[in-house]
Design a protein around this nucleic acid. Structure first.
Lengths: 152, 152
DNA sequence: TAAATTAAAGATATTTATGTCTTTAATTTA
DNA sequence: TAAATTAAAGACATAAATATCTTTAATTTA
């Protein structure tokens, strides 16, 4: 796991992408229950995603969160940079100050290769993809029941 | 970076592997100066490595740390498991409780592939390798000077 | 043996990440 | 318009990681 913030953000976004829409907004209550994440902490994360226009929200009765179609193609990598910029920045396993191709630490090549592979995957994975994979039924977000139907 | 502890451990071990021996023990003072890491924090990390028999030490004047030949083939992965077991254990990017091949999260395959690649590299990299790479002169540990000769 | 040196151990402090609670603002509904 | 509902914002609390300091134990040297 890179951080809880990022993990919760991905779970929350997937839930909203899957179950929400402009007609069916997802309240923070439903969301934190649905993905089993601390209510208020998730609230803070959602605020950040709203500020960054990944998620839309309205207050008041019937209010909640949803994702506009235009935001459904934002990538998991964009979310990571937004939520956890330090993780993306810290590019040396050995904590060397300026670790790069020209003056690499002894593990530079291996670590860069690994990170690039992951980051490329995250760049290719959109919110639409995340929801689609869960909907396809082979993938799951939690363990609330044992059925093949994902409770998310 | 996985954690500062692991980063500092790798730097310290590489320094000792490169500059130390039973005849030339490395004091904590020399070590923390040499790799530019907080003295006492590094001390704690070294204690853990000594307890786990990666590093040998003696107290008193002329005392310090060194690595026995038999320990020079311990891998970076062993160090990671020892220093930071949680990092090795936390195997889901989305924080799903039981994320595995049978009930994967939507990013399971990608994340596992990335981690395995890195872990395999770390398993193949011994303390001997780390020192050797630095000694070969293409790789570096710090930026204390600009020469091609690694100050480590 | 006494003094000096060095790592080990333990206590404490600070910072960052994570988690919680309260108040405010926006919106809807009666 | 008043009451209810919900997210936003801000303050606060706790836990984990990182960092520091002090005391103790081992070893060497004079």
């Amino acid at each position: 796991m890179l951080s809880k913030k990022f993990a919760y953000a991905l779970r929350g976004l997937t839930y909203i992408a899957l179950h929400g829409s402009i007609e069916k907004k997802i309240s923070l209550q439903e969301l934190s229950d649905g993905i089993d994440v601390p209510h208020f902490f998730l609230g803070k994360i959602m605020q950040e995603l709203v500020r960054n226009e990944i998620v839309s929200s309205v207050k008041g009765p019937g209010g909640g969160f949803w994702i506009e179609d235009s935001a459904m193609n934002r990538s998991a990598f964009e979310i990571l940079k937004m939520i956890d910029p330090k993780v993306v920045a810290s590019n040396c396993l050995m904590g060397k100050k300026n670790c790069d191709h020209d003056r690499p630490c002894p593990l530079h090549a291996e670590y860069v290769a690994c990170r690039n592979t992951l980051f490329d995957s995250l760049k290719e994975t959109t919110l639409f993809n995340l929801a689609g994979k869960v909907e396809a039924g082979e993938l799951f977000l939690d363990e609330k029941n044992n059925s093949k139907i994902c409770t998310l």
